[in-house]
Design a binder for these strands. Structure first.
Lengths: 215, 215
DNA sequence: TAGATTGTTAATCGATTAACAATC
DNA sequence: TAGATTGTTAATCGATTAACAATC
């Protein structure tokens, strides 16, 4: 039975389910049981069934799940059938790489604008679009109503830029700066990536392996 | 009292503590209480004290924590005093951006090599080093013994490349491909970044906001 | 000393796993 | 029908929060 509030742990597993089901589909799988999927993904079958049942009854007793049906259902839950307009703020190294590395459309978004302060970058292409001067941000937003933004500016200007973007109507932030966007505003969504923290975690793990070796 | 096995939830919070304490230090803070830190970070004071006490007693009753002492302690736990050699595999858009965007040394690593198959990239600089031909990987590893690798190759070649790197002595992977490195090998560490999953999560959140609006 | 705040134990909460009746 | 596997409830496990004695 579909629940009202889904736990964050479940939500974070959904994209991974979607990804794995895509691979299975590509490999010609028609059906899969929770047990088989659990082995492929390193989860328990129980957890998988619990997760899916947060949203509805997608399986069939005695049979399992239809791979492409299940994948489509999860895709819809994730909003991947939409194309939410997204803009890139800061088109330097990391911004450019992210914009051109990912397929936004298959993830529920479409990149409609990119902005920077650097005259050497302005006018140059990033993915399918050209970089605009940041001074054009407000008029662009008024006209095109983007609802989400990738934040790839220097950390120092991140807080002010966040405020400005909110005033321009941005509702969701994909944040690559080293600044933690804190959600004092209601109904503003933030996904803090923090690649530095991710790398630091790896350092922690390596040190534990080393310690074991020393014993 | 220092515990033997630390939960993943705690470990994932450590880099964030370290980051916040660095900001506090930069802003002239000498001491901080768990309550004050909890307000700044959006956690509970209880959790903060529990987390720190996994590793030792870093505070003082009636006083709180010394900011720079605490930061140094956490840095040591994370292994940030080390410079573990790391190589970049795949120096395209995303690889180059990551290598030049982050300060590896302050995160316990040092970038000692970069490799690619593309002749147009080979020989060009990435951060402080030059990109080498991937054919030189084995001899480089034999000589320089890097223990960690950033994986920025196309997803299709990720599994084979992972195996090759393990055979070259790589113990830790920072994986940016869309392939899930699964740890069948013992004592091999993996940090799967999956930017696509992160973006997909944002799409999910946006759809929940929209649904609320419709009600 | 009195006040503040830690370190730590106990209580609560939530998430994962196990079990099994329902059913295809 | 018999076998398989779901959907779902109950049991377990782990993580977070609350409480408070210890102590600076």
């Amino acid at each position: 039975m579909a629940r009202d509030s889904i736990s964050n742990s479940v939500i974070r597993r959904l994209p991974r389910y979607h990804r794995f089901l895509g691979e299975l589909e590509a490999n010609g799988y028609i059906r899969i049981s929770s047990r088989e999927l659990s082995e492929k993904m390193g989860l328990t079958a129980s957890q998988i069934r619990q997760d899916f049942n947060c949203f509805g009854e997608f399986g069939q007793q005695g049979y399992g799940y239809n791979v492409s049906d299940l994948r489509r259902e999860i895709g819809n839950i994730l909003g991947l059938d939409k194309h939410t307009p997204m803009i890139l703020i800061g088109a330097g190294n990391i911004g450019k790489a992210i914009a051109s590395h990912l397929d936004f459309r298959s993830k529920g978004f479409v990149l409609t604008g990119a902005f920077d302060v650097n005259p050497e970058i302005i006018g140059k292409p990033v993915g399918e679009i050209n970089v605009s001067d940041i001074s054009e941000l407000e008029s662009f937003c008024a006209e095109n109503k983007p609802v989400s933004a990738i934040l790839c500016v220097p950390t120092s200007v991140a807080p002010a830029m966040t405020e400005k973007l909110i005033s321009c109507g941005i509702k969701a932030f994909w944040n690559f700066t080293h600044y933690d966007i804190r959600i004092e505003h209601k109904n503003i969504l933030v996904e803090n990536v923090h690649l530095g923290d991710s790398l630091t975690t790896l350092s922690y793990g390596l040190n534990r392996i080393d310690e074991e070796g020393e014993r």
